[in-house]
C-alpha cells in the first residue's frame, strides 16, 4: 500500500513539475513579445512615454503614436484596450503601465458616449481576456491589477498551464505567428474603406450609448482616473473622436463634455462635419480608417486647445 502511494505521489509530482516546466518554457519564449498582435503589459513596460492614449477600440484604432511622436517631438504610446469601453479598464491599464514605467506627462482618454463607468461582469468570454491569459498564472505585482480586473479564477491563477490551455493560447505562444503585428504600427491600423454594401449603415450601435442613469457611475470613474493622474502629476485630456453622421447627435455627444467640464478636465470634440459626413474616412460606423485617422491628426494639429495643452504639459 505504501509503495503504491509513494509511486503515485512521485508520479503526481513529476506531472506537476512537467506542467510547471512547460509553463516556464512558454513564458520564457513569449517574454517581451506579443502572441496575438495586440498590446500587452510587457510590450509597453520598456517604453517610458510622455503621452499615453487610453480607452477602448476607438482609442486603439484612432490614435497613431507615430504622428504625435513626429508632430510634438515626444514619445507616445497607445495602450487602448480593444473591446473594453469601461473607464475602470482605462484606470487598470494605466495602473499597470505605471507599475512598470515612469509616469507619462500626458494621458489622453478617448471619451465618448460608448464609454461606461462601472465594471462589466467578467466571465470566461470577456473580450480579449484570452490575450492576458499568459499573466494569469502566479500574477506579479505588475500584472495583478489586470488579472484581478479580468477576473481570472483560482484554478487559472494557481494551476500551471490551466489559463494557457483554457484560453487556447498555447499554439500561438509556441508558433509566434503574430509576433510583429503590434510593433509595425503601435495601434490598430485599418487601411480598408467601409464596404457599406456588405456592412450597411445602421444606427443599432446607438443602443450602446450611456443613458442618463449611468452618468453618475461615469462621473465617478472619470473622477477616479483624474485623481490617479493627478497623483502621478499626469495631465489628463479627453478627446471625443468622430463617429459617422448617422449615429451622431448633438445632445448625446455634448453630455461627455458636460461631465468633463464638471471635473475640470479639458475636452475636445473632434466630431466636425467634414469628418463625420464622409464614409470614406471610416471602416465601420464608429471606427476611422487610416484616411480618417490622418484627418483626425490634422484636426488636432490645428486645434488651439490641444496645442496649448500639449505645449503646457510638455514644458520641461
Amino acid at each position: 500500500m505504501l509503495l503504491f502511494i509513494k509511486k503515485l505521489l512521485i508520479f503526481l509530482l513529476f506531472t506537476l513539475l512537467l506542467v510547471t516546466a512547460l509553463q516556464a518554457i512558454i513564458s520564457f519564449r513569449i517574454r517581451g513579445k506579443t502572441v496575438n498582435g495586440h498590446d500587452n503589459i510587457e510590450l509597453t513596460s520598456g517604453i517610458n512615454a510622455d503621452l499615453v492614449f487610453l480607452g477602448s477600440s476607438r482609442c486603439w484604432a484612432h490614435f497613431n503614436p507615430s504622428f504625435f511622436d513626429t508632430a510634438y517631438r515626444i514619445k507616445s504610446l497607445n495602450i487602448g484596450f480593444d473591446g473594453h469601453s469601461e473607464i475602470m479598464m482605462a484606470i487598470v491599464r494605466l495602473s499597470v503601465y505605471l507599475s512598470n514605467n515612469t509616469p507619462p506627462k500626458i494621458a489622453v482618454l478617448s471619451f465618448d458616449p460608448f464609454m461606461n463607468g462601472d465594471i462589466k461582469p467578467i466571465t470566461s468570454n470577456t473580450v480579449h481576456k484570452d490575450h492576458f491569459a499568459r499573466y494569469a498564472f502566479l500574477p506579479t505585482k505588475q500584472s495583478i491589477h489586470l488579472v484581478n480586473y479580468l477576473g481570472f479564477n483560482f484554478l487559472e491563477r494557481y494551476i500551471p498551464m490551466y489559463a494557457m490551455f483554457k484560453y487556447k493560447h498555447t499554439e500561438d505562444a509556441i508558433l509566434l505567428n503574430n509576433i510583429n503585428s503590434w510593433a509595425i504600427y503601435g495601434y490598430e491600423r485599418h487601411d480598408e474603406t467601409w464596404d457599406t454594401i456588405a456592412h450597411p449603415i445602421t444606427d443599432v450601435i446607438k443602443k450602446k450609448y450611456f443613458i442618463e442613469s449611468e452618468e453618475k457611475g461615469i462621473y465617478k470613474s472619470l473622477d477616479s482616473l483624474n485623481k490617479l493622474c493627478r497623483l502621478y502629476n499626469i495631465k489628463l485630456i479627453c478627446i471625443q473622436t468622430p463617429v459617422y453622421k448617422n449615429i451622431y447627435d448633438l445632445h448625446t455627444f455634448s453630455r461627455t463634455e458636460k461631465i468633463c467640464k464638471s471635473l475640470s478636465i479639458p475636452f475636445i470634440d473632434a466630431n466636425k462635419d467634414y469628418l463625420i459626413n464622409n464614409s470614406d474616412f471610416f471602416y465601420n460606423v464608429n471606427h476611422l480608417n487610416t484616411k480618417g485617422v490622418n484627418m483626425l491628426n490634422s484636426f488636432l494639429k490645428n486645434d488651439s486647445l490641444f496645442n496649448s495643452f500639449m505645449s503646457a504639459s510638455t514644458k520641461p
Binding site: T15, V19, M161
Partner: peptide
C-alpha cells in the same frame, strides 16, 4: 513508460480544458 503515461496525462489535461 512513465514518460508515456505523463504524456497521456498532459494530453488529457490539454483536451479537458480546451
Amino acid at each position: 513508460r512513465w514518460a508515456f503515461y505523463l504524456f497521456l496525462v498532459i494530453v488529457i489535461y490539454y483536451y479537458a480544458i480546451t
